[in-house]
Every structure is written in C-alpha cells, then in structure tokens.
C-alpha cells in the first residue's frame, strides 16, 4: 500500500504519531492528484487521438499541443450555473453524480499502479470487490433516470439496466475462471502467478468476453446505448449540466483507465516482462489497451439494444461458461 511505503520512508525523520498524520496527508494529496489528473489527461488524449482519426487537429490553442485545454474546460465547468428542471426529484438528482463518481474513484483506488505496493487500498479479495462496484452502477442509473422525470432519461435508464445486468453475468464468470486458474481473487496474486505464462494464453475466450463485457459495463462507445447522443440525446444524463455532468464525464474516464488496468493485470501479466523494469512494462501495456479502447469508440457505430442483449446472452455468457468448464476439466487433470 502507498500509505505503508510513505510511512516507512518517513519513519527515519518523524516520531510515530507525527509520521502517521504526515503520511496520511501525503497519501491524501497523492490520491487527489491521481483522481484529478487522470481524467483530465485522459480526456486530452482522447480528444487528440479522436481528432487525428477524424483528420482534425483537436485542441491546439491552450498550452503546448493544447495540453491545458481540458484544465480550462474543467474550470469553465466549475463556473457554470446549476440548471435544474423544476420537475426533478432533487434528492436523487443531486446525490447520483457524487455517488457515481465516488464509485469510479473507489474502483481505481483498489487497483495497483504498476507495482505490488502501489495501491491506495489493499483488500484480500479485491477482484470481487471490484465486481461489486461495477454491479452497483445500474442501480444508481435507474435512480437517476427515474428522478429526472424525463421520458428520454427513463428509456436510457432501462436500457442501461438491461445492458449492464446482461454483461455483468458474463463478467462474473470471467472473474471466477481467473480465480480458479490463479488460485486467488487478489489482483496482486493473480499478476504474480502469471509471471511465466499470461492468462490470455490459458483463457483466450475469457479475455475476449472480458474485453467486450467491460466496455458494455462502463457504457463506453460503441456500447454507449444508454446515453446515445443521437437517439436519446443523452439518455439518463439528459437533465444534468455543469459540474454535475462533468462528474459523470470524469467518472467515465476513470472507469476507462480502471478497465484497461484491470485487463492488463488479469490477462496480460501486469508488470511481468523482460529487460525493462516492471512498472514501465505495466504502463506500456495499459496505454496500448487504453488506445485500443479509445479507437473502438471512434471507428464503430453502435448496435441496437436488442442486438446488444442477444450478443450478451447468446454468445458471451455461453462462451465464458464453456471456458470455465474447460478450465475446471484442466484443473482436475
């Protein structure tokens, strides 16, 4: 854990009580930096990358290569008025953006950042806890869409609930397979046990299922049906504006990073690799996974909701179950 690292580093200079406070503060500042910088920088990468795909320049005016553009946008978002429709249910309307982004931040705090000690929270069964966090989001979305009192929002909310519930089933089966192959539900142990052979070689089907399922669960395009801006305008986010909408956006980018880190840790061996230090390997793999996720958004259209559900039920769930059975048989032998 990062806290322990800082504590042991400062132990030479400070008495224990002062050290406790100082390292807690330092961890807090680090968390803040990660939480604020990640979505902003990821947002810049996304904008620039999509711009190059679409033969545009993207942000160029604010800062070198437009690097400061997203900081400017966040400041602008904070200065905006809160426009609230008079018919919304204020309690759920105001609560959901905070809860939803808090969930995303909790998700990323559970993940390792390139080395066993670089985690903010370490739990023995953190893979299962991550699953719980992912499974929690349709509930929030339904509450938000119902509280908004808008037809488009309700349509988007139900779509979202159907989609996430479908794909979570496939996702839990992939987690179970990983737990069985690696003998642990702790991400750090999972990474340690694939130092020789990556999980993607044992579980190719599961890797595909996890990849597709995780895009659907975080509602990233091309599976962003609940908030499809062309049909439902913004789906369940239709009434949100200003910083509340910004919180959703920040949560989205954090989730995107979380999913790529998760994919790298579960299937691509995390920080295992030759020649280079582990942390560099980890971030190379994460950036590649991230870029792949982003390029999907800008090159594919979205399927229809019934098509999406039938992909989930008819293909992904059976595939992951088949892979689970294969793994079980292999372990028996």
């Amino acid at each position: 854990m990062i806290f322990n690292e800082i504590y042991s580093m400062l132990a030479y200079y400070l008495p224990p009580k002062a050290n406790l406070i100082a390292s807690a503060l330092a961890t807090f500042v680090l968390i803040l930096i990660v939480l604020i910088a990640t979505p902003i920088i990821l947002g810049w990468v996304d904008r620039k990358f999509s711009a190059r795909i679409q033969s545009r320049y993207g942000p160029i005016y604010v800062g070198k290569f437009g690097l400061l553009q997203n900081f400017a946008d966040v400041i602008k978002l904070m200065g905006k008025n809160f426009v609230t429709n008079q018919y919304v249910d204020r309690f759920s309307y105001n609560l959901i953006p905070i809860l939803s982004s808090a969930l995303s931040f909790l998700l990323i705090a559970l993940l390792p950042f390139g080395a066993p000690s670089l985690t903010f929270i370490s739990l023995p069964y953190n893979l299962l806890f991550i699953y719980i966090l992912l499974a929690f989001s349709p509930l929030l979305i339904i509450i938000a869409s119902w509280g908004e009192n808008n037809k488009f929002a309700v349509l988007g909310g139900f779509r979202s609930a159907a989609q996430i519930t479908t794909y979570e089933l496939a996702l839990i089966v992939t987690f179970i397979s990983i737990g069985m192959v690696n003998g642990s539900y702790d991400i750090i142990n999972v990474i340690a046990s694939q130092s020789l052979i990556w999980n993607i070689i044992y579980l190719p089907l599961t890797a595909v299922v996890f990849f597709i399922g995780s895009i659907a669960v975080i509602e990233r395009a091309p599976f962003d049906l609940p908030e499809s801006s062309q049909e439902l305008q913004a789906g369940w986010r239709i009434e949100y504006s200003g910083l509340k909408y910004g919180l959703f956006m920040i949560g989205d980018y954090v989730k995107l990073l979380a999913v790529s880190i998760l994919f790298v840790s579960l299937f691509l061996g995390g920080w295992s690799g030759a020649f280079l230090p582990g942390i560099i390997w980890f971030w190379i793999k994460t950036v590649v996974a991230l870029m792949f996720l982003m390029s999907l958004r800008w090159s594919l259209g979205r399927p229809r909701i019934d098509q999406l559900l039938s992909i989930g039920w008819k293909w992904l769930l059976p595939l992951s179950v088949i892979n689970l059975i294969i793994v079980e048989v292999m372990m028996l032998i």
Binding site: Q54, R56, W298
Partner: peptide, 12 residues
C-alpha cells in the same frame, strides 16, 4: 453514419 453513433464517419 452519425445517426448510427459513428461521428468519425460524419467528419470524413
């Protein structure tokens, strides 16, 4: 293309 959720194609 944009109505299918593919903004890239619109810009192309």
């Amino acid at each position: 293309g944009q109505d299918l959720g593919n903004l890239t194609f619109f810009i192309w």
